[in-house]
Design a protein around this nucleic acid. Structure first.
Length: 224
DNA sequence: AAGCTAAGCAACCGCCGCTAT
DNA sequence: GATAGCGGCGGTTGCTTAGCT
């Protein structure tokens, strides 16, 4: 009779992060169950993978989505629906989880704004033609439809607004045309195919990219 | 200052598909 | 070909923080 090891759950500690990064560096980011075992972390392989993919991976960008990233998310979502990982692959440095959260929060906010506007004009305008994805979101009907379809409508409405805002604002953020975005996507796809390299291909620089807080107190002698 | 609400984000769950045996 | 194990994905939950009354 094998005794089931009790797995830790909940937020990761800095120590766990360090340990995970070290073992990912050592063995790569594929065999998560194996990694979970050899690292001594009392976590499931899945949990380790999630932590790495969504937080520890040095290729990740942090902070607010840029306007061009926002537009890209809208555009790609209108094309692919809730295929978050697929969308994430086209937006370097962003994870599916991040994009999903972004969509959920920011789009809901904008849906509310739009709804306010639309109810003041015509109660039955917009939010009507659900087209993509098998979303099981159980909010009220307007919201569900918004998640599925409103991206493009927003793109159009927001595009004009942002363009004028950016002219006025002090920071002159470049607004990408869709042509430019698609060119970007295509070249990214080409690169992906050409290189077809695993994520860990860039991991030799891991130590350079990892947040200082992760490394500054690390006792390397214990690993020699 | 305290309480409440909404937003943001990290993490978990369950399902599905791929792969090794 | 069957099946078990694992990784990946999308959906959901729950905790923390910020903003408002």
């Amino acid at each position: 009779m094998v005794q089931e090891e009790i797995k830790r759950r909940g937020p990761w500690t800095e120590e766990e992060d360090l340990q995970l990064v070290f073992y990912v560096k050592l063995f790569g980011d594929r065999r998560w169950d194996f990694l979970a075992k050899v690292s001594g972390l009392k976590r499931t392989g899945k949990s380790c993978r999630l932590r790495w993919v969504n937080y520890l991976n040095p290729d990740l960008k942090r902070g607010k989505m840029t306007p061009q990233e926002e537009r890209l998310v809208l555009e790609l979502h209108s094309k692919w629906g809730n295929r978050w990982s697929r969308i994430a692959r086209k937006i370097p440095g962003r994870t599916d989880n991040e994009i999903k959260n972004y969509w959920r929060n920011h789009m809901r906010k904008k849906a509310q704004e739009l709804r306010k506007k639309s109810t003041s004009i015509s109660p039955s305008s917009s939010f009507s033609n659900s087209s993509s994805s098998s979303s099981s979101i159980t909010h009220d009907e307007n919201e569900t439809n918004f998640y599925d379809t409103v991206g493009l409508e927003l793109l159009q409405a927001e595009g004009e607004k942002k363009a004028s805002n950016q002219e006025q604002g002090g920071e002159s953020m470049k607004v990408y045309s869709m042509d430019e975005i698609w060119k970007d996507i295509e070249s990214l796809e080409e690169n992906e195919e050409k290189m077809n390299k695993p994520i860990m291909g860039s991991i030799s620089t891991l130590w350079d990219y990892c947040p200082d807080s992760l490394w500054k107190d690390f006792d390397w002698s214990s690993f020699r």
